[in-house]
Simulated assay, not measured.
Amino acid sequence: MKIETKEILGKWKEFTLTNDQGMAVSILNYGGIITRILVPDRDGMLENVVLGYKDYQHYVSDSNFFGALVGRVAGRIQGASFELDGKTYHLEENDGENHLHGGPAGFHSVIWEVVPFETAETIGLNLHYHSACGEGGYPGNVDITVTYELNNANQLSLTYTANSDQKTAFTMTNHSYFNLSGNLRSPVGGHHVTMESSKFVELDEQLIPTGKLLEVDGTPYDFRRGNLLRTGFESGFEQNKIAGNGYDHYFIFDDNREEKIVVRDEQSGRVLTVHTNQPGVVMYTSNMLDDSLEFKEAFSEKYLGVCFETQASPASLHHEGFPSVILNAEEVYKRQTVFTFGVEG
């Protein structure tokens, strides 16, 4: 196993973690962005399985959050404001009248302090950032550490640890767009997804949660026994149409299985398994992408990647019955998501 470092644009550093199987993960100190993940297909061919810009400079103005760490709160906050203990906090608007993924100066756009490490069985990076009270409109001084760790079983774990000196809103995620076909060979409509979730969050026309939880039974949102992503792309179901004929919804996990999500690509044989202690996930199928962006292997197009944004729900700031994003003073926030890459014949 090895860790390599190179300078990017004369101002950033990119760290590449490579295990003994040849799996490699490249991460910027800017935004904690995952720029590339190389994993084998069923024939042992190492190819990239995430979307990443060909020109790194495009990450500065990126509105798609490719590969980035997002926070303080991942997802949309209605009206760019929330109330906490009788006080209203006003956040920066960057999605119409709403606040998205921590705002324009969120964690995706800061320089993280990075310390590489190696253990007997893993290699990794500890990324640290201090978010000052009032940053983006949020209360509390928050210290955050995100650990990226790779082992020889082709498992990439992301561990998020944080604490605040005031009660605040906080839920982080990583915003990588996965495409198991390899080197962006084809869109993700043929990806077969199994997800342990029997309820998802209804959205309005602005993609803001209405406060209502919907049952997945009899809808294109039922992935409990597996379903192709194109099912939602091609359906006339109202919630799919609202999201741009795809998915951009929060699914609440059921608790009956440790493996929360399994993604299979029959063409390449690649399998992605997601384990997490987060209460749910936003699955976004890049419905808003057009053909104007240049990645390392191809130009962008609709449905070219799928995000699994494991997190709590910002809808909890305005509605009852959703997984809470409140972090109390001196409480330790500790969440982990593990992406395991394998193959099937």
Rank of each mutant, 00 (worst) to 15 (best):
G103H: 08
H99M: 00
I111R: 04
H101A: 05
G102D: 03
A132S: 14
H130L: 12
F107K: 02
P116K: 01
G103P: 12
F107A: 12
H108L: 00
F117E: 06
S131I: 11
G106S: 05
D95F: 14
S131H: 08
G102K: 02
A120I: 02
N126E: 15
S109Y: 13
G124I: 08
E97H: 13
H108A: 10
G102Q: 00
L127H: 07
F107I: 11
L100V: 08
N126Y: 07
S109E: 09
V114M: 07
N94E: 03
P116G: 03
W112F: 11
S109Q: 13
E121C: 02
N126Q: 15
N126F: 06
H101E: 08
V114N: 02
A132M: 09
E118G: 04
A105G: 14
W112E: 02
E118L: 01
L125Q: 06
H99I: 09
H130I: 08
E121L: 01
W112N: 05
A132E: 14
G103I: 09
H128Y: 12
E118S: 13
C133K: 13
E93D: 06
T122C: 05
T119H: 00
I111M: 09
I111K: 08
G103R: 11
E118Q: 15
H101I: 08
E118D: 02
G96H: 06
V115P: 00
W112D: 03
H130P: 03
V114I: 14
P116M: 00
P104M: 11
E93H: 12
I111Y: 07
I123H: 00
T122G: 00
E118H: 11
A105Y: 13
W112I: 10
N94L: 08
P104L: 09
I111E: 04
H128T: 15
P104V: 12
S109D: 12
L127E: 04
N126W: 07
P104G: 13
L125R: 01
E118F: 04
A105T: 14
T122P: 02
N126D: 15
T119E: 06
V110S: 02
D95R: 12
G124N: 04
G102N: 01
V114H: 00
E97N: 14
T119K: 02
F107E: 10
G96K: 04
T119N: 01
V115L: 01
E113G: 11
T119M: 01
S109C: 09
W112S: 07
H108S: 12
V110T: 11
G106C: 06
A105P: 00
F107C: 14
L127D: 05
F117M: 10
L125T: 11
D95K: 13
G106T: 06
W112R: 07
E93I: 08
S131Q: 14
T119V: 06
Y129F: 14
E97Q: 14
P104F: 07
V115F: 01
N94K: 09
L100D: 05
N94R: 11
G96A: 10
A120H: 02
G96E: 06
H108F: 02
T122N: 04
W112A: 04
S109N: 15
E118K: 15
G124A: 06
F107R: 03
D95I: 05
E97V: 12
H128M: 05
E93R: 15
F117T: 08
P104W: 05
A105R: 15
T122W: 01
N98K: 06
Y129G: 03
L125D: 06
I123A: 01
H108W: 01
H99K: 09
F117D: 04
